[in-house]
Design a protein around this nucleic acid. Structure first.
Lengths: 158, 158
DNA sequence: CGCATAACCGACCTCTTCAGTAGGATTTGA
DNA sequence: TCAAATCCTACTGAAGAGGTCGGTTATGCG
């Protein structure tokens, strides 16, 4: 498996926030119920998203979470990276701020690191897929923004 | 990390086999020494490659491993899949023999699985990168086939 | 005020996988 | 017959996945 459920759950959480029509914050428990995910686990995930400044929170009663930016401006590489950590195909594979690729084995032998070419291509493929997808697309794909006027948003208590 | 060292080591092993000029089998200990990898761990990995019919083995003294096909005919998706198991971005993500994508959550709610679009794209990116790379390319990248007449192939005992 | 509702935080727990080791059995060429 | 090799199974220590639990702080509302 390339990614763990951290990415899965976290992305679903973001989509759920993106589905909200108004600007009212959504409580985590509402998201947990809508997506049938464990609340206390979501707390850990949303903390990562908050640290990455992808969501903002308001505490207290009627508090909750909101997207920090419009869904159109959020690309999924930001989201997945916040949840899973730096996305590299392999342990030895690091990217410097300038975009240069480093490989720990680089100087460990007489010739070039045989796998570098491969992992560079894989890295490119994944990054392109993630960076080329916006949260808005996923919201749309999952049924679009909730109209906000039908029965009630996700959080309607049973 | 997308892949573990199983893929890393296994690919290097394959490259090492691909670097051999003749058709003589290469012993694992020679590969282990050349790549500075633990022999007993390589044994596990090469077993997977053998099961996938990517390498053939000859037992006994002066035995070893050979590529089952020319390096040009081996694509890296075969190799990585043999080592890491089926390549899917997410646990819930399965591909049927006919190439149809299944998602375990598909019927778990009222609307389409929000993340399916994303993981499909990621899957595509990775598969394309892996299937579009041949072992021969990596061999070439890593310095090409050992001339077979210079000092001695990888296995020269110190 | 006081309470319910929320975000926040850290410790803990169980299970699986990773990465590697160990020990042996079997096959084969010299 | 010996050494070199593949082959096979079992084990282990460390780390991460996927949660759970208990408690603290902040806040709107009656």
């Amino acid at each position: 498996m390339l990614f763990s459920t951290k990415a899965e759950y976290g992305v679903r959480l973001m989509v759920e926030l993106g589905r909200q029509p108004g600007s009212a914050p959504v409580s985590l428990s509402a998201v947990a119920e809508a997506e049938r995910l464990p609340l206390s686990y979501l707390e850990h995930l949303v903390a990562k998203l908050r640290n990455a400044e992808l969501v903002t929170s308001t505490r207290g009663a009627h508090g909750g979470y909101r997207l920090a930016q419009p869904a159109e401006a959020i690309t999924l590489d930001q989201v997945v990276e916040a949840l899973e950590g730096q996305i590299a195909p392999m342990e030895c594979f690091h990217e410097t701020p300038e975009g240069k690729v480093l490989c720990s084995h680089e100087s460990d032998g007489d010739r070039a690191c045989a796998t570098k070419l491969l992992w560079t291509r894989v890295q490119g493929g994944v990054t392109k897929a993630l960076a080329g997808t916006t949260l808005a697309e996923l919201v749309e794909f999952s049924g679009g923004v909730a109209s906000g006027a039908e029965k009630a948003p996700v959080g309607s208590v049973a």
